[in-house]
């Protein structure tokens, strides 16, 4: 395949960035999107230019490290995958592909396609856990968990923290991310004890970190590579209001 790439290049957060055009040929449709970028980088290095910096690690869609807009969509044109799972067969010969970093106030650009997503960790630090120390747990089967709730908790817990929801949202809200953690823990009996406090702390921290609020457009759900549902945001809101009233 032959491709034209328009890639965002930016040296640091304080410098201005710009799109730079690159052309590539002989790309196998069986290669992955990041392998295509590897090929570009090898070429740039041989030509004496600086390679494009992008975050990636597991390359199997689970670590949440990779993330970029590809033709305007977080993680690219395919559904329910991360950028590393995207394959070139989803594109056509001669295509122009536009590649940009996540754009959100809470995710400053570090270099090229790499952004700082540590704000997501700050949110979790404020209460995205069950406060139990190692060594004082009862037998694992002593608290039965309704299977339906356990399954719903799991569906929320699969969030990989990639930030696509924030990138997709016109308000750059982290509501889907926060609601996934709130739901995961609130749905389990072990997590109910701190549920009330948790939802408040996490939402407050999200606001303080510069993420926007949720206006129910659903872009986050549409772009989430793990299929986290909007119903988690509904659950977060319910938890939030309930904790205010009772």
């Amino acid at each position: 395949m032959k491709l034209i790439l328009k890639i965002w290049r930016q040296n640091s957060a304080s410098e201005r960035g710009r799109f730079v055009d690159y052309s590539l040929s002989d790309i196998s449709p069986e290669s992955s999107f990041l392998e295509m970028l590897d090929i570009l980088n090898e070429k740039l290095i041989m030509e004496g230019e600086e390679p494009v910096v992008f975050d990636h690690d597991c390359r199997e869609g689970i670590c949440g490290t990779c993330g970029m807009y590809i033709n305007g969509r977080p993680h690219g044109p395919d559904e329910l995958i991360t950028a590393c799972q995207l394959h070139m067969r989803k594109f056509s010969d001669g295509d122009t592909i536009v590649i940009e970093p996540w754009r959100a106030r809470a995710f400053p650009v570090i270099k090229d396609l790499t952004v700082d997503r540590s704000a997501l960790d700050r949110i979790i630090e404020d209460g995205g856990y069950i406060s139990v120390n190692t060594g004082n747990a009862p037998d694992a089967n002593s608290i039965p968990v309704n299977k339906e709730h356990a399954d719903l908790a799991m569906d929320a817990a699969v969030c990989i923290g990639c930030g696509a929801c924030v990138a997709a949202c016109k308000n750059a809200s982290a509501m889907l991310f926060v609601s996934a953690k709130v739901s995961h823990l609130a749905l389990l009996p072990q997590g109910r004890i701190e549920a009330r406090e948790r939802v408040h702390k996490l939402v407050a921290r999200m606001d303080a970190l510069g993420f926007g609020n949720c206006t129910n457009t659903g872009a986050c759900e549409a772009e989430c590579p793990k299929g986290i549902k909007l119903t988690n945001i509904a659950r977060l809101n319910r938890e939030y209001y309930r904790s205010r009233i009772f």
Partner: peptide, 13 residues
Amino acid sequence: IDHCVAQGIPFAR
């Protein structure tokens, strides 16, 4: 297993 369940790991049930 006991500790992980207490932490809220959503194991299959």
